[in-house]
Amino acid sequence: MSSFLLIDMILLGLAAVVAIGVISVRSLLSATMLGGIYSLLMALIWQNMNAVDVAFTEAAVGAGISTVLLVGTLLHTRRETNQSPAIHWPALLTVVLTGSFLIYGTVDMPDYGDASAPIHTGRVQQLLGQRVGKVDNEGVHHAWTYSTMAEQSVERDEPERSFPPERSHGEDHGGDAEAGAHGHPNDDFKGHSPNTVTSLLAAYRGYDTMYETAVIFTAGMAMVLLLRRREERA
């Protein structure tokens, strides 16, 4: 067993224990603090899985802003929940049934970390490897279309279906002239984004991110409408 899997298992076990604590403690302040701990554990898990941007966001948002938000709510409401029965049997039954169906659904998933899983070999990956945030072959290539993209993928004789598609690249990097002939052209760090997460976020999924930003804006406006005191009228 690799150290990666060992750390992953330990952190996930801790996260499960903390999650049970979040649900079961009576004091809401304790639940909030356990929620912050849970978020930090998730950030560690994602760092372990190399999802650095996600870990960054979770540490800032989950452990920081969420905790402030929940503590602020507790100031307005109350610190403790009512005494409830220890185990809610219908809920437990529902949860166990749903959980076993979902686990039964995961048995056909590809192995954890399998590089030949469909998610790593599909059409999306070809698109990612070719275009997102890359310097183009001729330097300026304004009106590229899906047809030119398809041509270029045919031209390329490297195994571009594997992810990342440019993994065989490396030796032919002396001059720009020969770079276009084989492998991915101009695949150095001039003028485009080495962080593929950001380039995907802003370019490949630009529409999606725009509407996510609109969702955040709407949430802020909802907060203002629900909670802001009307000082002018008072």
Binding site: G133, K134, V135, D136, G139, V140, H141, H142, W144, N186, K190, G191, H192, S193, T198, S199, A202, A203, G206, Y207, M210
Partner: peptide, 20 residues
């Protein structure tokens, strides 16, 4: 819409970077 390659920049990559 959101096709950064047409932005006024030195080349395709710089335009993409500018848009991003």
């Amino acid at each position: 819409f959101l096709d950064y390659s047409v932005l006024p920049a030195a080349d395709y990559g710089a335009a993409e970077a500018l848009g991003m």
